[in-house]
Design a protein around this nucleic acid. Structure first.
Length: 409
DNA sequence: TCTGGGGTCCTTCAGCTC
DNA sequence: TCTGGAGCTGAAGGACCC
């Protein structure tokens, strides 16, 4: 077995060649939530396990490979997953534990190279070009990471090694589970072109259907289609982007510390709600949560949006840009309530509401305007004082009066 | 079968200014 | 004074990702 396919399962594509310019690694934990949940439950290793919400409307967050073999996959409704795998053990997610393991893994990556771009809790890109002299070739560094993640966190991960982010990401997917795949630069086209179009980053269900209708089934088909045709079919940005990817061209560097652009909370109710007062109470709580997150992260936001999903799953959003950015829950609530009321919904059954704030900036650098009728030492300072109480006595220590007693839903 | 929650990015359209 | 086009911004929706 060559070094580029360490511990790769049988039947996987092999790509031999030099890895000297393949300095981008994509590291992806295998069935992350399920693997972390099984660390404390060793007796469940090798059995079908599903991690997911226990509510009436939960979806699968993660599943072990034994459960996946039964047809279960992430984002699948739990009701369907239980039917497909009635023998599977269902575990409630423990987000605190996942966040802690994620912090440890990201710190491990940081000891390899300072250029780490986390994509989510369980995956990241690493640019190891500055670590080669200290740690060896990119493939060797990938092996080192896999060994350290396993030894220190008792979970497995897969690593893709390539000269671009996009190819590294595809390689880690092909290496799963518990493998490493390096794609030499001169073999990128051989690797890419047989893949189905859905393998391309950014091609989901709808776009794949669209492409297949055009007779484009593989990445090679995309590559051999005039870029103007793709731009007409998918729009100029997406068409051009897909064509570039199909030839393995992806100039995006690994970017550490990309700032967040928006922040929000949303909630799906256990049962659809049609009472405007109850909806208002949920909006108030969500606005309060979003404002608290903004203040904790030292940010303010300028555009406030409300999201409403109806019983038939159709969704609409309404947004409003404020004259000055805010991190005040009351101001966010007033805005989303105004947006919601302007929809004029009369006894319409609602499944979900969400509150989001966009156009984020550092609070320290953003001028703040007093709210209408607000005095210095007013609403914001009251909310900051509430933050302090909550930090000391728990999130439920202080709540708006109308939220005392949980809203229905 | 019946669809969570947290995000990003793109497209389209409308309104505004020059 | 009116009109049309370019460019910008905001709003809304959709697709996608993990």
């Amino acid at each position: 077995m060559s070094r580029s396919q360490v511990r790769r399962p049988s039947g996987r594509l092999a790509f031999d060649g030099p890895d000297t310019d393949c300095t981008i690694l994509h590291v992806d934990m295998d069935a992350f939530y399920a693997s972390v949940s099984l660390r404390d439950r060793p007796h469940l290793h090798g059995t079908p396990v599903i991690v997911g919400g226990g509510g009436t409307r939960g979806v699968v967050l993660s599943a072990t490979y034994e459960a996946r073999a039964l047809g279960v996959h992430s984002a699948m409704p739990m009701s369907r997953a239980r039917r497909l795998a009635p023998q599977a053990t269902v575990i409630e997610p423990d987000h605190q534990q996942y966040a802690e393991v994620s912090r440890n893994v990201m710190a491990l990556f940081g000891s390899i190279t300072p250029i780490v771009e986390p994509l989510s809790l369980d995956e990241a890109f690493l640019d190891v070009s500055g670590s080669l002299r200290r740690l060896g070739s990119p493939t060797r560094i990938g092996e080192l990471i896999r060994a350290r993640v396993h030894d220190e966190q008792q979970i497995t991960c897969s690593v893709g090694v390539a000269s671009t982010k996009f190819v590294a990401k595809l390689a880690s997917t092909r290496a799963k589970p518990d493998g490493l795949l390096m794609i030499p630069t001169d073999r990128v086209i051989d690797f890419l072109h047989p893949l189905p179009v859905g393998a391309l980053w950014g091609v989901g269900e709808k776009t794949e259907e669209h492409l297949v209708r055009l007779g484009l089934r593989t990445v090679g088909d995309i590559a051999n289609t005039p870029v103007a045709t793709l731009e007409r079919a998918l729009g100029p940005a997406s068409g051009h982007h897909l064509h570039e990817l199909s030839w393995g061209r992806d100039p995006r560097p690994v970017r550490p510390d990309e700032p967040e652009k928006s922040l929000g909370n949303e909630e799906t109710f256990a049962h659809d709600i049609d009472d405007p007062e109850v909806i208002h109470a949920h909006l108030l709580r969500l606005a309060d949560q979003v404002a608290g997150r903004l203040r904790r992260s030292g940010q303010v936001g300028r555009t406030v949006s409300v999201k409403v999903r109806f019983a038939d799953f159709t969704t609409l959003t309404r947004s409003r840009t404020l004259t000055s950015p805010t991190d005040v829950g009351r101001e966010i609530y007033d805005t989303v309530r105004h947006l919601y009321d302007a929809l004029g919904l009369e006894r319409v059954r609602i499944r979900l509401v969400g509150v989001r704030v966009e156009g984020l900036a550092a609070a320290a650098e953003a001028p703040r305007q007093l709210l209408l009728g607000e005095e210095e030492g007013g609403r914001r300072e009251a909310e900051v004082a509430i933050d302090t109480l909550r930090a000391r006595f728990g999130a439920d220590a202080v709540r708006p009066a109308r939220l005392v007693g949980p809203p229905e839903g």
